[in-house]
Design a protein around this nucleic acid. Structure first.
Lengths: 265, 265
DNA sequence: GAGTGGTCTAGACCACGAC
DNA sequence: TCGTGGTCTAGACCACTCC
């Protein structure tokens, strides 16, 4: 990473800096390596630290850098591909591996907003199961799975096991698993999905081990059963480390594209 | 929007400001309305302008605010849902409406990176068609569709029309349309797709009418034909205004969820 | 020319991790 | 205790839009 002087260009300094830094980390650094600290880089390029940080912000958003307080700035590993399309990935009981882990469950009347999204009357009881998704030893997503009572009511009750069967007070995590077990019996005949950019709220940020305001990919999934909306899942994926993949079952899975393929065009 | 004083809280000022501003624009402002300017807001909340701007940055990334130089900061319209899943949306000739408009076409040997992504030998001729997607009168995406010569070679040649047939030099836009017409004849039997966060490079930014560094959703689609990769499309969607939707054909399309549904949980 | 957001500066202090 | 990134300040000037 040389001591490049910034030539007078019409583009902003921070953008030019980003380009220079990007070229440097591509050619002179490898995954996990720490790059020089912000004060040093700012001095080296002859800019204020705030300007340098603007460039680092971009590269961090692109998933090329990871900044750790007290440690330094590291070259990030390539984003991990996370399958979100196939039904088994999101629906309880479908996946062999344990990709989703139940964290919590709250039972509460639906707020006006939530009721509208679920297509049920406001105030109806809604089970909200909170789950986290772990990939390669790291939490990559959190999810709130909202299930209106009326959807569960169409299912036969199941036997409770363990502590709950013995009349003890079930934990919230245990309650969540019970709801999920009941959902396993529900046949899903359709799912509609959308993806948009958002920022992590306080609770999500904590679960994702990131500061509040971190960019996330918000995946909203509507599960339909018998022509009705049976459940609504809102999942937030870490945008810095995740690449969401939407495969079609039974099709050829071609080789993954390098993250930087688009700069090659 | 009152003159709220910031209480001493463990969370950063800019994050608290975001929450206060979000509540204000939800309750006191409507779409398209201008909110007070940055210097006034900073004074009103007793913070530096840079701190206030951090909060506005968040809200802009969430698609809640739009900032226009020389004009002011406006409350943004809700994000538009953009279908990206169905085959007809991306593949040439499939869609009745003209959602994609050809802009340019370059014919060049594949760079090492691009060749690797396409699964062809480096240096093979690759047609790259540049298109833009227009929704509701606004450019919401740009795309580079890369087609290796070997994929086109498996198709019968088609008659050229208009200027090209008369031996004149075809424009690059015309070349692009010719490639697209040939692609219409190719039967696609599979597509694999991924979505990740990126930033708009200079050329993309210009087409999207946004400054460089703007967050975009990068949709990479691999089209397979006869078990081979026939084309690679890299599309960048404006993250501020777009919500990508992935519908499954033949399924119930349930009501869209409000953009702020996740804050209701 | 007046007003807006966009960029940039040169500092300061804090929170966190390693030693 | 030291070095790191995270936050915040109080200014400055520029680019753009509108009148």
């Amino acid at each position: 990473m040389g001591t490049a002087q910034l030539t007078a260009v019409p583009e902003p300094k921070y953008w030019h800096l980003r380009t220079v830094l990007l070229r440097a980390i591509d050619s002179e650094f490898s995954t996990g390596q720490v790059i020089p600290n912000e004060r040093e880089l700012a001095a080296r390029f002859g800019v204020a630290r705030a300007t340098l940080r603007q460039a680092l912000d971009q590269l961090e958003m692109e998933g090329r850098l990871v900044r750790r307080r007290g440690i330094g700035t590291l070259v990030a590993a390539p984003r991990v591909g996370v399958p979100v399309s196939r039904r088994e990935e999101g629906w309880p009981g479908g996946s062999r591996e344990q990709v989703w882990q139940t964290v919590d469950c709250v039972i509460a009347p639906a707020t006006e907003q939530l009721a509208k999204a679920l297509g049920v009357p406001a105030g109806e009881t809604v089970y909200t199961v909170r789950r986290v998704r772990v990939a390669q030893g790291q939490t990559v997503a959190t999810e709130s799975l909202h299930v209106p009572d009326s959807a569960l009511a169409r299912l036969p009750a199941i036997r409770l096991s363990g502590a709950a069967a013995e009349g003890e007070e079930p934990g919230r995590e245990e309650q969540g698993r019970t709801v999920l077990r009941r959902l396993e019996r529900l046949t899903v005949d359709g799912e509609s999905r959308s993806v948009e950019l958002g920022v992590a709220e306080a609770d999500e940020a904590q679960l994702l081990q990131r500061p509040p305001g971190t960019p996330v990919l918000v995946v909203t999934t509507q599960y339909a059963s018998g022509g009705r909306l049976a459940a609504l899942a809102v999942a937030t994926y870490r945008a810095d480390t995740c690449r969401l993949t939407f495969g079609e079952t039974g099709l050829v899975e071609v080789t993954p594209v390098a993250a930087s393929a688009r700069t090659a065009s």
